[in-house]
Design a protein around this nucleic acid. Structure first.
Lengths: 107, 107
DNA sequence: TTGACAGGCAACCAAAAGGTTGCATATTGT
DNA sequence: ACAATATGCAACCTTTTGGTTGCCTGTCAA
C-alpha cells in the first residue's frame, strides 16, 4: 500500500498511468514517445516502480515488453482510504466551521 | 493536486491524517504523543506539508495550534483520479486476461 | 514578573529519488 | 550471419526529503 502511494507521488508516473489508461498494452518505446523530455532509462525506471507497486503488469512479447494498467491497487486506495474520509467530509467541514465560529466568539 | 499526492506519499503523514480523523482538532503536542519515535520538529514539518497541500487546516488558539482534517482534496482525488480508473477496472482486468491468453496461444 | 509551556525558525546532515551516460543482451528482419 | 531494434543493468551525479539539534518567540499561570 505504501508502495502504491509512493508510486503515485510522481507526476510523470501518474502521466504514464494516464497514458496506459488511454491506450493499454504499450511498449516502453511507445511510452517514451509521449515523454520526450526524458531518456528511455528514466521512463524504464518509472515503469519499474509502477510494476513494483503492482500498478502495471507486463508481458514480454519477443524483444518488446507490453505494459498493462492494473487499476486494482488504485481501487483499493479508494476503498480503504478515501471511503473513510469521504464519509466524514461534510461532517468535518461543518465541525471546522463550528470551530472557527467558536474562535470568533472567544476573541 | 501534485502537492496532495506528494503529501500522501509518506506513511507518517498518512498516520497523522488517520489520527486527526479519529480525533479532530488536536494540537502539535498531542499529535507528537502518538509518534514517540520522532521529534516535535519533524512532526511539525509533516503537518506543514499537509497544511501546504490543504489537507489540514489550523487555528491558533492562544499559544497552541489546533489541527483540523480537511477531507476535500482526498475526495477530489477520488473524483478526478480514481473514478476514471474505477470505471475500467473490470474491463482492464478482462483485457489483461485476454492478452495473457493471446500470449499463450502465440508460444 | 518570571518560569514553564507550546510552538516557530534556521542550519545542518544522511539517505533516497530522479535522472543521466555507457555498455550489455536478446530478438528480428533482410 | 548481421545490422538494427528493444530493452536491461550498473555506476554515477544532483536535488529533494526526512530528520536532527539549537535557539528564539509568544503565551499562560503562579
Amino acid at each position: 500500500m505504501d508502495a502504491v502511494f509512493k508510486a503515485l507521488a510522481d507526476a510523470s508516473r501518474r502521466d504514464l498511468l494516464d497514458r496506459l489508461h488511454a491506450d493499454n498494452g504499450q511498449t516502453l518505446g511507445q511510452l517514451c514517445e509521449g515523454l520526450p523530455d526524458m531518456t528511455r532509462q528514466a521512463v524504464s525506471k518509472h515503469l519499474a516502480i509502477l510494476e513494483e507497486a503492482n500498478l502495471v503488469a507486463t508481458i514480454k512479447r519477443g524483444r518488446e515488453k507490453l505494459h498493462y494498467l492494473n487499476p486494482v491497487p488504485i481501487h483499493e486506495i479508494g476503498e480503504r482510504w478515501i471511503g473513510k474520509f469521504e464519509r466524514s467530509r461534510l461532517t468535518a467541514l461543518s465541525e471546522l466551521k463550528k470551530a472557527l465560529e467558536q474562535e470568533k466568539r472567544d476573541e
